[in-house]
Nucleic acid binder design. Structure first.
Length: 207
DNA sequence: ACTGCGATGTCCT
DNA sequence: GGACATCGCAGTT
């Protein structure tokens, strides 16, 4: 069990690095989002990231920024450490964290997480029939569990009410505990092995 | 366990 | 008009 009060927000410099390195290092980090359910006091929704994917404007046709800047993807071109949220399939949201320096469009898609705190609220946001294992197992499910929409697009993940943190007491996760594989849902573009997940986690979107 | 399909906004050709 | 960084449900094996 971790002490949530000990969690330290990651600095912007964490994200201002190679996208695939950031994608790996985000595994095991904590996503913390303060959320106010209608009529109730704010609650910290906390989830440990267990699955990520990297996307990069260079050499990656499946990246939203591969064909230049648009209204939708403009946050990817901005400074690192910002949230990039997009709407897809007419009903789902997916969230990314922008990486690399301003002007280089790249990001890490958060694909799955392990519920750590605020699970009751996540359950209400996801619906009563959803099992705990599936609360945050998938990019759109994770957004639904944390109530993320394009309203949060572009915000800086630097401090409360919304940030990513590490547990100072936890060791860095060894690469031997991770699986590297191809990304999910890419059908047209040449695929890259830019998906990472924690080998022993039951909370990943797919094995 | 596996397969097919409907939902449906935004961007791209 | 088609594809899409998806999901949940229904139907079948």
């Amino acid at each position: 069990m971790i002490d949530l009060k000990q969690l330290k927000p990651l600095p912007e410099s964490f994200y201002d690095r190679d996208t695939l390195l950031v994608a790996r290092e985000l595994l095991g980090k904590y996503l913390v989002r303060r959320y106010s359910p209608p009529g109730l006091k704010p609650v910290d929704l906390v989830a440990k990231i267990v699955e990520t994917e990297g996307y990069h404007m260079e050499g990656d046709e499946s990246c939203h920024a591969a064909r230049g800047e648009t209204k939708r993807n403009s946050v990817m071109f901005g400074p690192p450490g910002r949230l990039y949220v997009y709407f897809t399939y007419g009903m789902h949201y997916c969230m990314n964290i922008v990486t690399e320096k301003e002007g280089v469009a790249a990001a890490v898609l958060l694909r799955a997480a392990e519920p750590v705190a605020g699970e009751e609220i996540m359950q209400e946001l996801r619906g009563p029939k959803i099992t705990r294992k599936l609360l945050c197992a998938g990019p759109a499910r994770l957004c639904q569990a944390l109530s993320i929409t394009t309203e949060q697009n572009g915000i800086a993940l630097k401090k409360p009410p919304f940030y990513v943190a590490r547990d100072p007491g936890a060791a860095e996760i060894d690469e031997s505990a991770m699986i590297t594989t191809t990304r999910i849902g890419i059908s047209q573009a040449v695929e890259h092995p830019w998906r990472y997940y924690l080998k022993d986690s039951i909370f990943v979107s797919k094995k």
